[in-house]
Computed example of a mutant assay.
Amino acid sequence: MPSNLKKIAAPQVHIVDYSTVYAKSLDFFKKCCIIIIAIRFRNTKLKVYYNETEKNMDIGPKIKQLRMLNGLTQEELADRSELSKGFISQLENDVTSPSIATLEDILQCLGTTLSEFFSEENSHVQKVFGPEDYFEKKDDELGSMTEWIIPNAQKNMMEPIRLTLAAGGSTYPDNPHEGEEFGYVLKGEIVITIGKERLKAKAGESFYYTPDKKHYITSKKGAEILWVSVPPSF
């Protein structure tokens, strides 16, 4: 070999693993999509359905229960979450719905998170109810007043009500349906009509029947009863 020629080293060849590059690119793309979706829907109104029967979940009563457990007034919660007292009131009464971001802020002030708030095992779910939770409906024509003493019980397996009948009052005749009905007379005396059968019950007595015939309750002098339907039918 001539002395003026130098030996040239063979170039190094780098083998690229395109499967690894593709995997990393795909992972990056997924992360970008998640961020974009989160930003896009961050202020979307929140409507939640939960449990195996897809029952609509009421956010307002749970917010109210958490606020009371924390010993806060509506005004104090509003100040902490930088919202108006009016908005908190509307939220607790299910008049309005919060965005996800707003709900996160409120829950942070109440010492909980979204995942805990919507957990079926949440210990803060209301189990005791008072007069402020009741919903009532008066029927002046029939002389009756119905109080739903468990809010939204139509979603549950049973539906309890407190029925007050004025003198000569009556419930609306209910057509035959599946299920069972139980009642306890708190005051007065009633007559239960089931098809052609008429049954009397006075204060301290209870009744139970299968509503497979047209049925209704009347009271000559007025009465008050606790009445339960399984499944809900009131």
Rank of each mutant, 00 (worst) to 15 (best):
E121A: 12
R162F: 12
G204M: 10
D27K: 00
Y184E: 02
S233T: 00
L91H: 04
E76W: 03
L46R: 08
N122A: 14
E159F: 07
G143M: 05
P151C: 04
N175M: 07
T20L: 14
E224T: 08
D174T: 08
E92R: 01
I217K: 04
L26Q: 10
E116Q: 13
N4H: 09
K7L: 12
G169M: 02
L103W: 02
F28G: 09
P160N: 09
E120L: 15
K196H: 06
L114R: 01
E224R: 13
L107Y: 00
W148F: 15
K85M: 14
A167T: 04
K6D: 14
S170D: 04
H14M: 06
I149C: 03
S123H: 10
L5N: 01
V125A: 08
D139T: 10
N70Q: 10
F117W: 05
S123G: 05
D17R: 01
I15M: 03
G168I: 01
S229E: 04
T53H: 12
I37N: 11
I36G: 09
K220M: 01
N56Y: 12
F41R: 15
G130H: 07
H177Y: 08
N51E: 10
Q12F: 06
S219R: 00
D133R: 13
D174E: 11
E92C: 05
